[in-house]
Design a binder for these strands. Structure first.
Lengths: 346, 346
DNA sequence: CTTAATTTCGTGTGCGTACACAAAATTGAA
DNA sequence: TTCAATTTTGTGTACGCACACGAAATTAAG
């Protein structure tokens, strides 16, 4: 492994000069700069990140802006865990994480947290932009300061995020369609239950719906897709009633699809209605959802790999900050099909 | 962040003494050792891995012993890529990889490579022990020298590998069963095609078969499982004929399961026999298999995440060598269901 | 050609640790 | 008590790099 000193000797300059060249600092004549650069190239030298970090006492702070998790089993706990795992690998390299949280159902709290975060002038930010409008409105707080940021979980349009890390929602819905197509019999109906309240992140959900419907457009099997909207999940009685009503009137319904992480509510209803014959599918392997998967109320889940979202996000920012390694704009995570049979091996 | 020097000042000793305590080296009186230890504890000091590695010019060599890949799309290319990726993250920390390869169909070449590897006295080894007997016979070469080793891909029994990284094969077969159960109609038959030649790693394959059959034991749907053995894949004509014979005599066969990565051969036959109505499922998203997945000859694949096998394996060894962090014995990777619809998002 | 201004370059120190070596303190034997 | 043997502790240097400072070389001005 060659060092700066080695390069210096070959180039017949001092280590200091090589260092200046490497960091693009002024004070080197064009001639010697080119010479040194050429030698660096030829001797395939790479900086020793370890020594570099040790010497430059620079410290980096990555701010995370994620929804508060209600409990340790919440979906949003996973990205945090992932970020923490990544941090453990790089904390000796001068990296810290500063966490900011917000109530995902309260736009104000998002805005406040966003501002607070921007005010701390982090080296970079990792954001779950589940509230689209508010994100659009506040993102300039980071851009004005040239703070790079990546988005996880929710794909956005027209913003200069370094990268997006998460699932291609359309395709997630498409895969869900495929699975229902497998599971449901010919000439049956599948019902989409859209939950209006207690759910944010409409961007993702709409994409999933699009993908889901798209699948059945080109499917050979004749399965028809219906949709109802539930306005709240706060009262399970109401949900039961609405669901019962629908199922009574549409006896051909053999499956229910929920394009969010809320399939567990439907599962509860289905149990109470004693309609385990209906196949259920939804998103996210939260603890609650997994429980219904295991007792066979839910037939499949599609995981967004939330843990990887945090892990990969932090790692990506790390690489960018250290090596200025430009990441690809879209870092799509696997569309993972989770069944009772493989849920224990994630 | 406290440093050795800080500790030294608090404990009223020299940095050298603190260092001796940290490394459990002799030359420190019991009294001061305890005092220093206590202060280290209290001031929650942790060694700066970066500086530590820079100072100790120790270098670690991780030997990999994997099958030669026939081409860049071979299954075994993936673990190598993963290992390389991991290496990139730790090469500045004094780590190197030394690769050893063998012909997976030639036990002799495995033994030779094993011996060669052991002779280089690596710091640790990453092995794909697809040949069970030969592994049992040679593993002492590493144990005698106290060289830690992890196994990837193939689970073994009775060996002191630090860890196994790979899929739970039984469960992989079980999931395959579930998928066929979804895809196949009531009262149909699924055919297992076992390929005797050109396939090693019987351990994994037998486990998969067990899992597959096990699934149907407790399935409500009445699907019966049959099995034939093919002795070679060298001559596609023979395969075609045998397959045609079987299908003609067993018209109820609606699916074919191959418990190895060789499903593509069956797929070719199925196309030639013009029997695309039959559902195919198998293992490993090799390029060839994926091609048949995409053209809908193959219905599903189960991926072993071969890339992660290499990556996680090297990372695990790294953590063990640096921090003596004892890994858990079994590091099971996800049983990933790969469909035409999600194959592009792995 | 001189001298100052400016550019270009070399030297030295420190980051936190590992390790070799030197120094001091303790112990033991006479 | 004395002095050597032994144990215990302190000091210095190196790892590869970043960066400040000062020295040398070049250029410009007179």
């Amino acid at each position: 492994m060659k060092s700066i000193k080695d390069i210096a000797i070959i180039a017949k300059v001092s280590p200091g000069t090589v260092d200046r060249v490497l960091h693009n600092r002024p004070g080197v004549s064009k001639k010697t700069k080119e010479r040194v650069l050429k030698i660096i190239e030829e001797s395939n030298y790479t900086v020793n990140t370890v020594a570099s970090i040790l010497a430059s006492k620079k410290t980096y702070t990555i701010a995370t802006l994620l929804p508060t998790s209600k409990n340790e089993f919440d979906f949003w706990e996973a990205p945090k865990l992932g970020a923490q795992k990544a941090l453990n690998e790089i904390k000796n390299l001068g990296f810290r994480i500063e966490s900011f949280e917000f109530n995902q159902f309260d736009p104000d709290s998002y805005c406040k947290a966003f501002k607070k975060m921007a005010n701390t002038n982090p080296s970079a930010a990792l954001i779950a932009p589940i509230l689209n409008k508010e994100t659009q409105e506040h993102i300039h707080l980071l851009e004005d300061k040239n703070i790079p940021y990546v988005f996880i979980n929710t794909e956005t349009e027209g913003l200069n995020n370094l990268s997006f890390i998460g699932q291609k929602s359309f395709q997630g819905g498409f895969v869900a369609g495929k699975l229902f197509n497998w599971v449901l019999p010919e000439n049956s109906e599948v019902l989409i239950v859209e939950i209006r309240k207690n759910v944010v992140n409409y961007t993702s959900i709409n994409q999933r719906l699009k993908g889901f419907k798209d699948f059945f457009k080109n499917s050979e099997k004749s399965i028809s897709v219906k949709k109802i909207a539930i306005n709240t999940l706060d009262n399970l009685q109401i949900l039961n009633k609405e669901l019962k009503n629908y199922l009574d009137q549409n006896p051909n319904t053999k499956g229910i699809f929920v394009p969010s992480s809320k399939i567990s509510f439907i599962a509860k209803s289905i149990i109470e209605l004693n309609r385990k014959d209906i196949e259920l599918g939804g998103f996210d392997n939260t603890l609650e959802n997994v429980a219904f998967l295991k007792n066979e109320t839910v037939d499949f889940l599609i995981s967004q790999r939330p843990m990887e979202q945090g892990y990969d996000g932090v790692k990506l920012l790390f690489n960018y900050l250290i090596d200025k390694k430009q990441p690809k704009k879209n870092h799509y995570l696997p569309i993972e099909i989770v069944l009772k049979e493989n849920v224990d091996f994630l």
